[in-house]
Simulated scan of single mutants.
Amino acid sequence: MENFARTQINLSTADDFFLSGINIPRSTSNPLGSNVTRITVDQIPSLNTLGISIARIDFAPYGVNPPHTHPRATEVLVVLEGTLYVGFVTSNPDNRLFAKILNKGDVIVFPIGLIHFQINMGQTNAVALPHFNSQNPGFITIANAVFGSNPPINPDVLTKAFQLDMDVINYLQKQLWLNND
């Protein structure tokens, strides 16, 4: 195994360990008012098997990173600029919300697989830098997965599960859900 790893390093270049531009703000002119720039094994090949990755999240004033989950990673989020209201929900049976208002320099942990969110509470832009303990943490936006699946989930299932009128379910399934990934 050591020889294989040495061979892989010998075939690598400096560019396999490098990415520039994370300091450049991304456009937040979308319905969510946020933009997530992922830095995973797809962007930096040398992250393969290392069990780490990061991202940058840009928020317009009152922009949101909607409820989502990372099925393969715990997230540690650091606020670089602005004020964010963040939270996560524990799993059944209690579905307890843990929420905080974070300012520049604050850090929060979102445990693996739990639904979590962030929203910019300020009138200025905000920036956060999430870190993950996986080179490929995955990203499932709850509304997209439930109401924007392809093919659609049978509306009868959703009306019972969410205890909503069929017209509401049909409306939600017709929305163009933004993928903030």
Rank of each mutant, 00 (worst) to 15 (best):
L114E: 01
S29V: 13
L19T: 05
P67F: 03
N133S: 03
N154V: 11
V168C: 04
D181L: 05
Y171C: 01
W177H: 14
G138W: 07
F88A: 06
N10H: 04
F110R: 12
D58M: 01
S91G: 15
F17Q: 01
R6F: 00
H131I: 14
G148I: 10
N10A: 10
I22F: 09
T28F: 01
N65A: 10
N48C: 09
P111Q: 06
F117G: 10
Y62C: 10
F4D: 14
I108L: 03
G105C: 05
L178Y: 13
V168S: 09
I112D: 08
D165M: 03
Q8Y: 02
W177N: 12
N23P: 02
L102A: 10
V78F: 07
F147Q: 06
L77H: 02
P61D: 02
Q43M: 01
P61T: 03
L19I: 13
T141M: 06
Q163T: 15
I112C: 14
T13C: 10
M166E: 11
V157A: 12
I142C: 03
H70K: 06
I112G: 10
D42L: 13
Q8I: 13
K174A: 11
Y62I: 02
F147N: 04
T124S: 12
G122P: 07
N133T: 04
N103F: 08
D165I: 06
E81V: 14
T49M: 09
H131C: 14
N10P: 00
I108A: 12
G138R: 07
V107G: 12
I57C: 09
T90A: 08
S53D: 11
N35I: 02
N95P: 00
S149T: 05
V168A: 13
S29N: 15
S12L: 10
A128N: 09
D167M: 01
A126D: 02
S149Y: 12
V64K: 07
V79S: 00
N150G: 09
I112W: 00
T37P: 00
K160D: 08
H70D: 10
N154P: 08
I142P: 01
A14M: 07
S12Y: 05
L114D: 02
R38P: 13
L102M: 15
D106Y: 02
E75A: 14
P111E: 06
E2R: 03
G113S: 04
Q8W: 02
Q175L: 13
R72L: 07
R96S: 05
F17L: 06
S149H: 12
I9N: 06
N65S: 10
D58L: 00
Q163M: 13
M121W: 00
N144G: 05
L178I: 12
F117E: 06
G113P: 02
N144Q: 11
I169H: 01
R56G: 04
L129Y: 04
L114Y: 03
T13F: 05
I52R: 15
D167T: 08
P45G: 07
